[in-house]
Amino acid sequence: MHPARSLILFTVLSGQGFGLLVFLGLGTPEVEGWRAFAAYALAFALAGGGLMSSAFHLGHPERALKAFREWRTSWLSREAWLSVAALSVNGLYGLCLMLGLRIAPLGWLGALLAIATVVATSMIYASLRTVPRWHRPEVPVLFVALALSGGALIAGQRWLGLSLLLIGAGLQLFAWMRGDRALAESGTSIHSATGLGMMGTVRSLEAPHTGENYLTREMVHVVGRKHAAKLRAIGAALAFAGPAFFLLWPGGATVFLAAPFHLLGTCVLRWLFFAQAEHVVGLYYGRR
């Protein structure tokens, strides 16, 4: 799949913003007054900025409000509703905190909605059968883990952040191992795509056109896969190993470096999430 910048920023930034809202909602750390204002401003900048950048992916951003209509069937629509609900509840809770009022259940509800929003974001991808690497239960779990670890690091939670980084790294490794086999195990091949498998070995002889088209550019992205192994190492180093190192450094002087490194690493991992995903339509073009 084509790794669109707007979608990488959307999923990473909104994930980290909602992750931060989870910890603020749970009261780890407990913030009040001006500290609450700063923390919530950062969380809203991340979550809101991410959501705004998703609009740049649209052909008609001016019609974006219509995306609230079909929540019954569409995860994209559910994501829109949940993000608005999460931002509203957390905004209200944050406002109360700034005024020195702590309504704990409101914070818990905000945390729950923030997690639900990240789940909905990931389900936009995980619900697509056409991309076997995405159509897996570990995808939403990994999205939530990365959002929570990012949130914990920004919230300055040293040991909680460290354990979440460990869980995230394990899940990412698992997702890569399973994902690499996903297309082969899905049972979809050029033989089932063309229905001609019973006649012999099928090979694409000629594409329908000499150039590219919307489908090949959007869904048959092969450029970045060349360096996938190296990028995995770089992404894992930035997102997990680096931040863990900064958290463990004696004295805690480098703790503040963990969050920006994790954010950068998550961007690399998310780039790979798109670039490495194979859409089955590529089979019709004899490509992956």
Partner: peptide
């Protein structure tokens, strides 16, 4: 008139 051009339907279609 209602299409926002998000492209998700094209992703969901296995046949291109």
């Amino acid at each position: 008139d209602d299409c926002i051009g998000c492209g998700l339907c094209a992703w969901a279609c296995p046949y291109g």
